[in-house]
Each structure stands twice: as C-alpha cells, then as structure tokens.
C-alpha cells in the first residue's frame, strides 16, 4: 500500500513536470494567444502546488493574478499589438 505522503509528493512531482512542459511550450510557441493559454495551464499547475504546499493565502492571491489578471492584461496587449511573434506570417 502506498502511503498518502508518497502519493502527495508524487502529485507534486507530476505537477512540476506538467508545469515544465507548459512553460516550455509557452516560451517557444509563436502564436502569442496560445502562449498565454499555455501559461495559464502552467499557472493552474502552480496554483495546485501552492495548495498542496499549504499556502492558501498565496493561492488566493496567485489565482486572481496568474489565472485571471495576467492573461487578461496580455490579451488586451495582444489585441492592441500583434498576435504572432515575428510578424503576421502564418
């Protein structure tokens, strides 16, 4: 029988790897709209980490900021500028 401790640490490790993939995709993606959404995936993973690491205060401030305000602000920015990194080619 696996102990709950190992399971919870396993969740942390999985979240770390998911966030890594999401960060990687977000940084390399040329479509900035998609990059924002990938970064939202990464934020969700981080939010779950904060929860497991027993930081509800941070979760309450992080979720509005990283899931809500950052994407909003950056979507406003992309709307006002350009959607593709390196010009509108695709």
């Amino acid at each position: 029988m696996i102990s709950p401790e190992t399971l919870v640490f396993g969740v942390l490790a999985a979240l770390g790897l998911i966030s890594m993939v999401a960060t990687f995709m977000a940084v390399l993606e040329r479509d900035l709209l998609k990059a924002v959404l990938f970064s939202a995936v990464q934020s969700t993973a981080y939010a779950f980490m904060f929860y497991i690491l027993m930081a509800p205060d941070i979760l309450l401030v992080y979720v509005p900021v990283a899931v809500g305000l950052y994407p909003a602000v950056i979507l406003f920015l992309i709307k006002k500028t350009e959607r593709f990194e390196g010009g509108e080619e695709e």
Binding site: P56, D57, V61, P64, G68
Partner: peptide, 14 residues
Amino acid sequence: TPGGGFQGGATAAV
C-alpha cells in the same frame, strides 16, 4: 482565515 485586502481586492476587480 486565508485572504486579506489584496486577495479580496484582486477578486473584486473581476
């Protein structure tokens, strides 16, 4: 409980 001025303000900003 968890929360505070900033957390509340950021939520209210929605």
